[in-house]
């Protein structure tokens, strides 16, 4: 578990904003920002996580909280405290379907979610390196016995999670704006979604995201928009209470 994941999203959005102000084309700035954040993820693993003398769970949690604080603080110093508007990906502003008009960016978000979820699904289920990654997270000791370089696999998984976070961030930036403190709420929402769906389960993650997102919008519409975030967190706590493994989760979640 990496508490800096939300900050990767923030960095992706921020870098996207920064590259666009430099008049770099959208596709290129998208690729650049996701690549840079991926490298940052790799670097965090190589320097901090590998460098930890006594890598116990508590120390690692606290470590990633510290890294998240540093990323957030640095981004505030570099880009300021204001929310920055980011241009849409597609050349037209809005689209009308069945009389409903919405920003064209929603198409990109929707397509992006489907594309990357499919890619991840293929990666983890069909490719060798994806299966190795799942195995090293399930049982690192057994993998070492089979001659797998678990450290290297972890480093790659940090690269991928940094890149995916940044992709999410730069895709969502035209809708949500880029702000230095967006990472926290993004990370927490992402965690809520994966708890609701079931941790370490891709289908569950999508379902959890949909459940959280839809109930948030319903709460915003029927109760008040200031309470919409509360609903997401309440659902997460409720799921933790009733079925901690999540709706689609496996039964063998580690219990004390």
């Amino acid at each position: 578990m990496n508490f800096a994941q939300g900050e990767f999203v923030m960095l992706g959005a921020m870098l996207q904003f920064y590259f666009l102000t430099l008049h770099i084309p959208i596709v290129l700035s998208f690729l650049l920002s996701s690549l840079i954040v991926g490298v940052i993820g790799y670097f965090i693993h190589a320097v901090f996580i590998r460098g930890t003398r006594n890598p116990q769970e508590l120390a690692l949690i606290v470590l990633t909280i510290g890294i998240a604080m540093i990323l957030r603080g640095t981004s505030m110093l570099l880009f300021g405290k204001n929310a920055h508007a980011v241009k849409q990906f597609l050349p037209f502003d809005s689209i009308t379907v069945f009389g409903l008009t919405f920003s064209s960016q929603y198409i990109v978000v929707f397509a992006g979610a489907i594309i990357f979820a499919t890619l991840l699904f293929i990666y983890f289920n069909k490719t060798n390196s994806g299966k190795v990654m799942m195995a090293s997270s399930n049982n690192p000791l057994a993998c070492r016995l089979f001659g797998i370089d678990v450290e290297q696999v972890q480093a790659i998984s940090f690269f991928i999670s940094g890149m995916l976070g940044a992709i999410g961030g730069s895709i969502i930036a035209p809708i949500s704006f880029a702000k230095y403190n967006m990472g926290l709420i993004m990370g927490l929402k992402g965690f809520s979604a994966s708890v609701v769906g079931g941790f370490g389960n891709n289908v569950g993650a999508i379902a959890g995201g949909l459940i959280i997102g839809v109930s948030e919008s319903l709460a915003a519409g029927y109760i008040s928009s200031s309470y919409k975030d509360i609903v997401a967190f309440l659902i997460m706590i409720l799921v933790l209470f009733v079925k901690p493994s999540g709706i689609f989760g496996a039964k063998d979640i580690e219990r004390v």
Binding site: T52, A68, M69, I70, G73, L77
Partner: peptide, 17 residues
């Protein structure tokens, strides 16, 4: 404005060493 970075840095150093 530097406090978040200082706090984060302290946490990182303490957690690592």
């Amino acid at each position: 404005d530097f406090w978040p970075i200082v706090n984060g840095g302290l946490l990182v150093v303490a957690a690592m060493f």
